[in-house]
Amino acid sequence: MIEMRELRKDFTVRVKAGRLRREKRVLAAVDGVSLSIGAGEMVGYIGPNGAGKSTTLKMLTGVLSPSGGEVSVCGLRPVPQRTRLALRIGVVFGQRSQLWWDLPLGESFRLLRYVYRVPAAEHEARLRRCRDLLDLDEFMDTPVRQLSLGQRMRGELTAALLHGPEVLFLDEPTIGLDVVSKQAVRSFLGELGATGDVTLVLTTHDLADIERLCERLVVIDHGRVVHDGTIDDLHSRYGSRRSLVADLDTPLPPGFALPGATTASIEADGHRVTFTLESTTAGAAVAALVNAAPVRDLSVVEPEIEDVVARLYTDGRGVSGVP
């Protein structure tokens, strides 16, 4: 569905060098990205600010022309075939509204039916579904400028889906939303993805979006792909480990060691211990601990994806300022 080969985007910036002189400098916002995304996949595209996420998305949607490499979406080349491609993809740029500011939300949907030339019955069916799933009814007649951010984002999602796109691109769809709206957007996208009819590519800073929605995670930094795989792949590759936290009735005997695990911390005078599981299973570790000490309570803690990603980012070469 989406193919990128050695895709690049260079920006020329003029940097002040002295009082009047300005130097031209070429910055690679996207520096040779090769990815292949199949139909029906849900892919999360993450990276620190300025990593090249949005720039990639803009090249996929025909907004920006690539400086090098090849790109195809739905078998079309985005820039020369922009208008044909636009009929087959949906785009939600969190910061760029597709809606008519001064018109009621419902009016925007009506106009989009003409813009995308959708048969009335299809339009009606899709709109009905979105109205139900996203609870649009109460603000269909409200001018867009008066909508809350959460309401507007639900409107944007609907606007992007009314023409039945094959691929949906979402640039930070949950940015700035409150918890409830975030949940609404996520569960809607989850249901949409589960049908398998739509290929979904989303960029985000909120890793919970990825954990909830995407089997596949692509991490980009300095315009290059630094990880492409499942979230589990990421954990095993970057050595993030589960830990076992136990509350004990009596303090842990000094010098105690759990086979295949390291002792991460001992708190509350030895009443609470945390082990990092290196080369053992949670089951074996629990069994060994229960034999050695009176355990009152215990829990196995999954590694935080935030921690892994933060480590990935800081492994990079500092932060650049390229959009």
Partner: peptide, 13 residues
Amino acid sequence: NGTLDAVLVRPLA
């Protein structure tokens, strides 16, 4: 403002 993005993603000139 970069708002031309929204215009460019529509199937019209």
